[in-house]
Design a protein around this nucleic acid. Sequence first.
DNA 1: TGGCGGTTGAC
DNA 2: TCAACCGCC
Length: 448
Amino acid sequence: MPSILWFRRDLRLTDHPALCDAVAGDDTVVPLFVLDPALLEPAGGPRVRFMLDCLRALDDDLDGRLVVRTGDPADVVPAVAREVEASAVHISADFNPYGRRRDYHVARALGEVPLQTTGSPYAVSPGRVSKPDGTPYRVYTPFYRAWTEHGYPRPPNRPARIDTVSGLRSDRLPAAPDIGDTALPEAGEQAALRRWADFRDEHLLKYAEDRNRPDIPSTSRLSAYLRWGCIHPRTPLADLESRTGKGAEVFRKELAWREFYADVLFHQPASARDHLQPRYAGLKVDAGKAADERFAAWAEGRTGYPIVDAGMRQLRAEAWIHNRIRMVVASFLVKDLHLGWKEGARHFMRYLVDGDLASNQHGWQWVAGSGTDASPFYRVFNPVKQGQKFDPSGDYVRRYVPELRGVDGVAVHTPWDLPAPPDGYPTPIVEHDHERREALERYEAIKG
DNA sequence: TGGCGGTTGAC
DNA sequence: TCAACCGCC
C-alpha cells in the first residue's frame, strides 16, 4: 500500500520524517505537490518564482518523479488517494501557524484514510511551548529558555532508495512570474545544505561580532530556504549542539526568534493584520498625496538617506535585505515618514524571497513598537548613525547606490557634507531630527 | 537589537 | 575636549 507524501511548505528529501517513516516501512510513496492557486500569490513575485524553482530542484532530486496536481488540496489529495488506493497520507511540513483549516478539510474529505502530520518547517511546532500554567509566552527571553528546554527532534537521514508509484499523471508547472533582473539565491535543498555548510564553517565563529555588518558576508542567508523548507531548522540546530562559541549561541537565538514569532501568530492570528497593542490604532499616521509620494520614495530607494536607499534597492535587486537594514528602513518608514507598519510589511511581503507572514509582520511590529515584547516606540533609529556604525566601510551603500560609488569610506553616509554633492543622488526628503521629535509627540498622544 | 542631552571626570 | 555614563523619551 503506497503512502502519499504530500509536500507543502517543505521542499526537501533529506531530513524528512514522513518520507523516512514511509520508506522504513517499505512503503512506495507518491511524492505529491498540490499546486493550490492560492500559493501563486500574485503579490509575491520573487517568492513564487523561488518556490517554483525549488519545486523543479525537488523534481530533479527525485529523477523527475514528482507528481504535481493543480487545485484545492481538499479535492486533489483525496482524488490521488483514490487513484492509488493509498493507505496513509503524510502531510509533510506546513504545520501552518496561520491555522490548520485546510488540513482539517482534507482529513475529513479523506474519511477513513488515516492522516498523519509530520515534519513542520519549524523546529518546535508553534503552540508546543507554553508557560507552566499553559498560556503562551509573550516575551522572547522566557520563550527562548522554555524552547531550549523543550528540545527539538534530531534530523533523520535521507533514505538510500525512494520507491515511487509509477504512471501517475503530473501537471506542468505554471510559468514563473517575471521578476526582471532580481537575482535570487540558487534554489533547492542541495543549495540550502551547501549554504549552511559554508556559513557554519566560514562565518559562524565570528557571527556574534559580524552579524550586524551588511557590508561583509556575515549572515547565514538561510531565510528563503527555511521559508520553503529546503532546510529544516533542526539540521543547523543539531550542528550547533557540538559548538560552544558565542557565534553558535547567538545564531541559535536568531532561529528561536523565528520560532517565537510563529508561536505568537499561532496563538494570535489577528496579529498578522493588526497591532498587538490596540492603543497603536490611535497613533496618528500620515495619509494623502504627500504621504503616498513619501512612501514611493522609500520603496524606490530615493529618500536621500544612503543606508535606507541602499536597503530598499537591495530589496529590488536581490529580493532580500540584511536584517539590520530591515530594522533601519522599517524605523525610517514608521518614525521618519509617519506611515503605518502595515504598508511597509505588505511591501516587504511583495518583494522578499523569504517573506514569511509570522516573521515579517512581527518584525515590523517590533520596530513599530506595537508588538508583544517589542522595541519601545521611543527607540528611533538614526539612519546616519546606523549607517556609520554598521556599514563603516561604506561598501554596502556603494554596492547598491551607484550615484555614490565615487565617494570613499564612511563619508558615503553623509553625502550632504561633501564639497561637491554627487550627481543624481537626492537630498534628504525629510530632516531626521525634526521627524524624530514629531514621532515622539505623536506617541505621547497615545501613551497609556 | 537607540539616541539625545546633560553631567562628570580624566586629560 | 571628549569618552563614559545617566535619565529620559
